[in-house]
Computed example of a mutant assay.
Amino acid sequence: MTLTKNKYYFEALDYFPYNMSECLDALNYALSYEPEDADSLCLMGRVYSEVLKDYETGKKYFEEAMQSNIANVNTPKFYIECLLSNEDYEEAEKLIEYALKMKGIDKAEILNCKSLLSERKGDNKKALEILKEARIFSYCRSTLDILDDREKLVQEKMPETNKKEETE
């Protein structure tokens, strides 16, 4: 059954987010073969949170994915992004702290989410500090580019006096 489930999961992943009809068909097949598959549940959460902007339903799928496999390193990043979009900052903060302790997780991605949390709370200076920490855990050019873009964005949002202090 796992091979069949994986086939449909990978099809769904391939279709996401460009062909949602085919994505949902494949995802429903994958979940029918293995209803507690964390990766399939996570992708369903992404469908609801990223495409449909139904954050509450997305959160339910992410919670189910976490309960199904607490060690799955794919779920926390997308779950955190859903929580941030839904302005569930306390939940996001707890999940970030948990995720940073997970073995094998991309810490740069999670720290980028933590920076976004600080920025959404209005603490741009802390957001910049976290982005600097995230650079330590960046092991590819694309991640560094993302962090550089985020850093520029946060700096542009800061008042002129704070910008001068940061550059000194």
Score class of each variant (00 low, 15 high):
5 K>P: 00
8 Y>E: 04
10 F>A: 08
10 F>Q: 13
10 F>I: 11
14 D>R: 11
16 F>H: 02
23 C>E: 06
24 L>F: 04
26 A>W: 07
26 A>S: 15
28 N>P: 08
30 A>I: 03
32 S>G: 05
33 Y>H: 10
34 E>S: 06
36 E>A: 14
36 E>F: 13
37 D>I: 06
41 L>C: 03
42 C>F: 03
44 M>D: 03
45 G>Y: 02
47 V>H: 08
48 Y>G: 01
50 E>I: 07
52 L>H: 09
52 L>G: 00
57 T>V: 10
57 T>Q: 08
60 K>M: 12
61 Y>S: 03
65 A>S: 11
68 S>H: 05
73 V>Q: 02
78 F>A: 01
79 Y>H: 08
80 I>H: 01
82 C>Y: 04
84 L>C: 09
85 S>M: 07
85 S>Q: 09
87 E>T: 11
90 E>V: 09
94 K>D: 04
95 L>V: 07
96 I>S: 00
97 E>C: 04
97 E>L: 08
101 K>G: 13
102 M>Q: 07
105 I>P: 00
109 E>K: 12
109 E>R: 11
110 I>T: 01
111 L>G: 03
111 L>I: 12
112 N>V: 07
114 K>Q: 09
118 S>Q: 12
121 K>D: 01
122 G>H: 10
124 N>Y: 12
124 N>T: 06
125 K>L: 07
127 A>H: 02
134 A>I: 04
134 A>C: 03
138 S>P: 01
142 S>W: 06
146 I>A: 13
149 D>Q: 09
154 V>I: 15
157 K>H: 10
161 T>Y: 14
